[in-house]
Amino acid sequence: MTLLSVNVNKVAVLRNSRGGAEPSVVAAAEAAIRAGAGGITVHPRPDQRHIRPADVHALAAVVAGRVEYNLEGNPFAPPRPGYPGFMALVDAVRPTQATLVPDGDGQLTSDHGFDLARDAERLRPLVAQLKAWGVRVSLFMDAGAADLSLAAGMGVDRIELYTGPYAEAHAAGDARAEIGRCAATAAEARSLGLGVNAGHDLSQANLGDFLRGVPGVLEVSIGHALFGEALHDGLGPTVQAYRAILQAAPAGA
């Protein structure tokens, strides 16, 4: 069954809007794990707009020996006051997986994958270091991206398909073209020995259709929609609803 990794960034956004320690990202992660989540995801940005380095360490202690831990971030982002740099955070907590994302400070959210023709040589030594630390490496990639062979050649374990365009097309009523692009890219990745994850704007409304159209997805990382739905239905029931969708996915998905 596809693993559900719950992204708790939005809990930190709410906490930071008021100051203090509530709502607690640790308590949210605990609730998600109790409800059956198979992983916890965070994306600590240099501007600390949501998840902070202290959260990364606190969550590492919560998930240890229980579920997977996935750190997302830009490996090229340099250290700055209060933020040691993405690679330093990974080194400190040694998560299950590092998902490398080419986002800049000015982006509201991740909205594109790597251009490997441009970035592969810069990524290569960083991937090697992550692998030496025993961390699984995933690259955030667009559906239809070229040069996936470069990812395989540098030792990357997985790609994460950026599913924002799919979600937009699904909401507009016709996702056939986008699901085809995702399926073709996933098939190419698997042919190169790469696992396939997916994330961004996946929700209860579109996740089932995505998994039926893109078989073999190993992990989905979901945060924004999940916590929006949880405001109405509760976090535990919402996580369980996602697990029911994953369990109902076709064999091999």
Rank of each mutant, 00 (worst) to 15 (best):
M1D: 00
M1I: 05
L3F: 02
L4S: 04
L4R: 00
V6L: 00
A12Q: 05
V13T: 14
N16H: 08
A28K: 06
A29P: 07
R34K: 10
A37F: 08
A37Q: 03
I40H: 08
I51L: 10
V63H: 01
V63Q: 00
A64V: 03
Y69P: 00
L71S: 04
P75V: 00
P75N: 00
F76T: 03
R80K: 10
G82V: 05
G85R: 11
G85N: 07
F86L: 06
V101E: 11
P102C: 11
Q107I: 12
D111M: 14
R118D: 14
E121W: 03
R122K: 13
A128I: 09
G134H: 00
L148W: 06
L150S: 07
L150I: 04
I159M: 09
T163R: 07
D174V: 10
R176C: 10
A177S: 11
I179V: 15
G180Y: 05
R181Q: 15
R181I: 07
A183W: 04
T185P: 04
A187Q: 13
R190G: 13
R190W: 04
R190E: 12
G193M: 09
L194Q: 04
H200A: 05
L202N: 06
F210P: 14
F210C: 11
F210Q: 13
L211T: 09
L211D: 11
R212Q: 15
E219Y: 04
I222W: 02
G223K: 08
L231T: 13
L231Q: 15
L231Y: 12
H232R: 15
D233G: 13
D233M: 14
L235I: 07
V239N: 08
Y242L: 09
A244Y: 03
A253N: 06
